[in-house]
Design a protein around this nucleic acid. Structure first.
Lengths: 291, 291
DNA sequence: GCAGATTGCGCCATTTTTGGAATAATCATT
DNA sequence: AATGATTATTCCAAAAATGGCGCAATCTGC
């Protein structure tokens, strides 16, 4: 079963009708070519071509073998070219698993442009909080808000978020506006699940404050809604609340302070990705570098 | 263009749904298999299968590649099996170039049996005294009465002839019967072209006698005919004149003496022969060992 | 004819590939 | 949860393939 490469060499020799020319087009020394063909013949126990130094002629067996081989080699070449196209030209269905919030806030606005860029692509988004199994399920890509600790998964940062603090004017009127992070501990701080404290930065200064409230959720949209409903202070990237800021539903507080940046990751099972996936990640990185 | 073998390995891995099992059926260490598949993936720039240590799953690219590859590999396997059959089961046309005398005297009687042995074979005999070019002309085999001095031609002895001396009774009556080789010089000795002397053996004794006559020919049949027509003494293998001996046309003389054996050769362009040629040579060697 | 050019093949130092053992990682079972 | 079994991958010494080079043989242009 180790004769398949030699088959391709044989086809090339027959096509070129010469060892030397075949070796040239193949980019290999003719000593190698000659030996490989000789070994192929020995392995099947038949001489495939009569050779003089000036001319080569197919034997009966060689004729038969060539007729079959050239088709086989050609088909193999096509199969590889097709794969090559997958690497070069984005097409087909891109299956992405990603969090709802990321999809609606960050991805959705970018999609029309990306889709227009690559007309051959279609999209299949699975908006789910769970961490899908990239190996078992047919996803090309997952977007995660935290780097996966699983080994043999490749994670690339596609966006860095710097959450800042926002609250509804009504909430601030009722509870007062904090002027230093330390004051946050006595406020309602709307946080995502599993978050116990905020680490706040101002220039080189860093303050960690324990935060908490009666409301927690795993949805940024939910947190934001709670904030506009004057339920508390939230730490959230600016882009998420740009509309609420514009119409006055929310107002930034402690404007000199910001939280430690968090990142969004494009997670894949491998680095050897088809073009559709590569371009998508590339595009997101470019557009979301500093979100 | 060096990925064709790896394609076969990939197909095997997919079929076995496991590297280990595939390596087993392929008879290779799984370390090699793993590395080869990995290199294949790297060379095309796409991952073909998602692997955990427990399960193998095709990627989209892998699925596509497998669909194409399995057909290609299967066809290649069939092509090789077909060649294998050419080695194993003799079939097709056997083209032989051989001398007329060998054909009529030695080969013809054997042909019915050989032809019956291999019904798939047909025969094309070219009876010619010239030395055909085995490389340029489509002959599978040439039978020669002398070893070719050309290199890169393979000659196998298929028969050894021990010529003995015969003459027609009428000739002997007229010219007397010699009782020692030395007497031959004054006889009409019918020889093949280019033969100047006979080397005669009796036990360990050797005598060389200059021979010659008014008749020479390159045909044994011609020489034999001249002998029966009482034109002289001839040195010829017994089998050639068995009929003439039986009906008294010829008689053996100097019965204790015989000429140096000569050989008939099966000459081919290579040792890598299809079954039809191999079996033919084999058959001739068996039946003509001591002619 | 004859000389130069071309071609296939054998030889051997060098590079590449291989294969067994160790390692990492996953799944089933307790 | 933890253990044990199974499996893919990595590492490194050993084996194999490679590729200039020279040789022998042949063909082409003069």
């Amino acid at each position: 079963m180790e004769y398949l490469n030699d088959m391709a060499l044989f086809v090339e020799v027959v096509k070129a009708r010469s060892f030397r020319r075949a070796a040239e087009t193949l980019g290999m020394p003719n000593s190698t070519l000659s030996r490989r063909i000789g070994l192929l013949e020995k392995s099947i126990g038949l001489r495939l071509l009569h050779r003089t130094t000036r001319r080569i002629e197919l034997t009966e067996a060689g004729q038969l073998y060539y007729e079959r081989s050239k088709r086989i080699v050609e088909e193999a070449r096509i199969a590889h070219e097709q794969l090559g196209e997958m690497v070069a030209r984005p097409s087909g269905v891109l299956r992405v698993s990603l969090p709802v919030d990321f999809a609606t806030t960050y991805l959705a606005p970018l999609l029309p442009e990306f889709a227009a860029l690559y007309p051959g692509m279609t999209f299949d988004f699975d908006l789910t909080p769970r961490n899908v199994d990239l190996v078992a399920e047919p996803f090309d890509l997952a977007i995660r808000m935290a780097a996966p600790q699983t080994p043999n998964l490749i994670a690339r940062v596609i966006a860095r978020f710097t959450p800042r603090l926002y609250a509804a004017p009504g909430y601030l009127e009722r509870n007062g506006e904090p002027h230093h992070p330390s004051e946050l501990e006595r406020h309602e701080c709307l946080t995502m699940q599993n978050i116990g404290s905020w680490i706040l930065h101002r220039e080189a200064e860093t303050v960690e404050v324990k935060v908490g409230s009666r409301f927690r959720g795993n949805s940024v949209a939910m947190i934001r809604r709670l904030a506009t409903l004057e339920m508390g202070i939230t730490a959230i990237p600016e882009r998420v609340v740009v509309e609420e800021l514009a119409n006055g539903q929310l107002r930034r507080i402690l404007p000199e302070w910001q939280l430690a940046p968090t990142s969004a990751y494009a997670v894949t099972e491998t680095r050897l990705l088809p073009a559709k996936t590569q371009r998508f990640i590339e595009f997101l990185r470019e557009r979301l570098r500093e979100a």
